[in-house]
Simulated scan of single mutants.
Amino acid sequence: MRGFFKFDSTKNLIRNSLKGFSQVMLMNNAISGGLILLGIILHSPFLGLMALLSSMVGTLTGKYCGGDKIAVSQGIYGFNSILSGIAVMLFLQNDWNWLIALFAAVAAALLMVFLSEFLAKRNIPLLTFPFIIVTWISLFAAYRFDALHINPSFVTSSPANWNLPVEGKPNFLLGLIKGVGEVFIIDSLWAGSLILIALFVAGWRFGVYATIGTFVSWLTAYSLGVDVELLDLGLYNYNAVLTMIAVGLMFDKNNNYFPLMGIFAAAMTVPIAAGMDLILNPNGLPVLTSPFIISTLLFLAMRKTIPRFESQIIEKQ
């Protein structure tokens, strides 16, 4: 088939699909992706299977619908599909849930193909935008169509109730582990632990930066007076983990030793999550990773506008 590039084997497809799991955490490592998948399987074997199928579907969609060859080999077209497939499986409830999840995976990959080139010309990272759009549209459809049903246990992510009394002593380690798990919309110590291990396998900085992001958001949220139970669930941490890795590591062209901008960006995800929740919750929509996108793009734009801002502050310390 002229104009198309081909996988050498099914083994390559699986490897690239596993990379999709690592790309959710902004990594490019098949072994780390396998560990993440294992964590999801230990939480729910069927959910793990659907996540893998979603990644494979997204990867194939990128391949046959004009996606970049290098991006396909790095699992780029799989990570939004994984998140979209998992979201549909968790948020919707009907006999054809698995089929809707695969359609969502295809839709997320198509959005990546269509938007990637447009945004790349403007040096704007796509991040998890396709996942958010596909998930929100799926939920809106479920509210309007009788054939689709919202899972009765569905609750919006990152509930920003700032008036709850702070009772008890929060557990930072619990918030760290569950926080990284919540990136995949999963409340599981097994999944969170293996995802954290996967981060360190990909590189010590990934693990350390994820820990720093959790600590910063944990401290910010606690100082603002959030409920301890919500803090321990990691609902205020997962956006900060992604933001810290993105701003402090992946998009830091200067490779500063001290990721000051990343720390600020991670802290900002907490109030952003609060604001987004106030806007989205009345419409029955979860915050998902929208605080990660907003904070990351805001600080990347700031870095372009004031390129010496971070280095000047570090020099003064």
Rank of each mutant, 00 (worst) to 15 (best):
Phe4Thr: 09
Phe4Glu: 05
Phe4Gln: 10
Thr10Phe: 09
Lys11Gly: 12
Lys11Asn: 05
Asn16Met: 09
Ser17Phe: 03
Lys19Gly: 09
Ser22Ala: 04
Val24Asn: 01
Leu26Ser: 04
Ala30Cys: 07
Ile31Ser: 01
Gly33Lys: 00
Gly34Ser: 02
Leu38Thr: 15
Leu42Cys: 03
His43Ile: 08
Ser44Pro: 03
Ala51Arg: 02
Leu53Glu: 04
Gly58Cys: 12
Thr59Trp: 01
Thr61Cys: 05
Thr61Asn: 06
Lys63Ile: 13
Cys65Gln: 12
Lys69Cys: 12
Ala71Val: 00
Val72Ser: 04
Val72Met: 01
Gln74Pro: 00
Ile76Thr: 11
Tyr77Ile: 11
Gly78Tyr: 06
Ser84Ala: 15
Ser84Gly: 06
Ile86Lys: 07
Ile86Gln: 03
Ala87Met: 00
Ala87Cys: 03
Trp96His: 15
Leu99Asp: 08
Leu99Tyr: 09
Ile100Met: 13
Leu102Asp: 10
Val106Arg: 12
Met112Ser: 15
Met112Leu: 14
Ala120Met: 14
Ile124Met: 12
Phe131Asp: 12
Ile133Phe: 15
Ile137Met: 13
Ser138Arg: 06
Ala141Phe: 14
Ala141Leu: 15
Ala142Lys: 06
Ala142Arg: 02
Tyr143Leu: 10
Tyr143Val: 13
Arg144Leu: 15
Phe145Pro: 09
Leu148Ile: 12
Pro152Arg: 08
Ser153Ala: 14
Val155Trp: 08
Thr156Glu: 07
Thr156Met: 08
Ser158Ala: 10
Phe172Thr: 11
Phe172Cys: 10
Leu176Arg: 06
Ile177Lys: 06
Val183Glu: 04
Ile185Gly: 00
Asp187Met: 05
Asp187Arg: 07
Ser188Val: 10
Leu189Arg: 01
Leu196His: 12
Leu196Val: 09
Phe200Asn: 03
Val201Pro: 02
Trp204Arg: 05
Arg205Gln: 11
Ala210Trp: 02
Phe215Gln: 01
Val216Cys: 04
Leu219Thr: 08
Tyr222Glu: 14
Tyr222Arg: 11
Asp227Glu: 08
Glu229Arg: 01
Asp232Ser: 00
Leu233Glu: 03
Tyr236His: 07
Tyr238Val: 03
Tyr238Trp: 02
Tyr238Ala: 00
Asn239Ala: 06
Ala240Glu: 05
Leu242Gly: 06
Met244Phe: 07
Val247Trp: 05
Met250Gln: 12
Asp252Gln: 06
Pro259Gly: 09
Pro259His: 08
Ile263Asp: 00
Ala265Asn: 03
Met268Asn: 06
Met268Ile: 05
Pro271Tyr: 09
Ile272Gln: 01
Ala274Tyr: 11
Gly275Val: 06
Met276Val: 14
Ile279Gln: 02
Ile279Tyr: 10
Leu280His: 03
Leu280Thr: 02
Gly284Ile: 11
Leu285Glu: 04
Val287Asp: 04
Leu288Asp: 05
Thr289Arg: 00
Thr289Leu: 01
Ser290Glu: 07
Pro291Asp: 03
Pro291Ala: 08
Ile293Arg: 05
Leu298Asn: 03
Phe299His: 10
Lys304Ile: 07
Thr305Met: 13
Thr305Trp: 15
Ile306Gln: 13
Ile306Leu: 13
Ile306Asp: 07
Phe309Asp: 08
Gln312Leu: 12
